[in-house]
Design a protein around this nucleic acid. Structure first.
Length: 204
DNA sequence: TATTCGATGTGCT
DNA sequence: GCACATCGAATAC
């Protein structure tokens, strides 16, 4: 798939975090690894908003791994969690804001055989990338990508799809966290089978 | 079908 | 120490 001309530009990621989270749905994420290309459509995201979001790693502190969150929109933030797993985020808004969007699930498009090799335990196609760490494993994402630029770099970036297709956006509160649980910051494509949790406190 | 639980590294307190 | 934006296996029903 030649998606180079359609790559999302910096200004997209400089917009409001909730806007970016919602509008990343249906976009194509491209991963170049070992001369191979993996692509998938983003079907599920979560917003993390530095200033007033207790669940955000940047909330109330300016140190350590969270420093990447204060980069400008479009920068990649990968963090390691629970001793085993990575999660992939794209920084949003202007430099110094501490906001990002977590990619929670994608629908595999290209390079599915490679994704299966990276996650051989996967039983069926729907479970290949339907979770933030499942997606990272299947796409070969680790801390090497932390702080990379998705606008200039080639390892990973996001494109507009050639063919737009219609879908409805569902909203819920976010999954797996202990604070900020009431905030409706999770967005996903309604009825898409690659979403991680289909019936999680749907608000809209 | 729903709930619990172990594995595991990093950065906080 | 302990919490953590998780996953998958094991257990309880």
């Amino acid at each position: 798939m030649n998606t180079g001309n359609n790559r999302l530009k910096r200004d997209f990621f400089l917009k409001n975090t909730l806007y970016v989270a919602r509008n990343l749905l249906g976009k194509i994420i491209v991963r170049q690894i070992g001369g191979q290309t993996l692509t998938g459509m983003i079907v599920e995201t979560e917003a993390y908003i530095g200033d007033h979001d207790p669940a955000c790693h940047a909330f109330g502190k300016f140190t350590g791994r969270a420093s990447v969150l204060y980069e400008k929109g479009g920068i990649v933030y990968v963090y390691f969690i629970y001793g085993n797993y990575y999660c992939f985020n794209l920084v949003t808004e202007d430099e110094g804001r501490g906001c990002a969007v977590l990619i929670r699930a994608v629908e595999p498009i290209e390079g599915i055989d490679i994704m299966r090799k990276l996650r051989p335990e996967t039983r069926n196609i729907y479970e290949l990338t339907n979770g933030p760490s499942k997606f990272c494993i299947a796409f070969g994402i680790d801390k090497e990508l932390n702080r990379k630029d998705s606008i200039d770099g080639n390892e990973i970036y996001v494109c507009k799809p050639y063919q737009k297709y219609k879908f409805e956006v569902s909203v819920s509160n976010r999954i797996g966290l202990k604070s900020g649980t009431e905030l409706p910051y999770r967005f996903f494509i309604k009825d898409n089978p690659y979403v991680s949790k289909h019936k999680f406190n749907i608000i809209k």
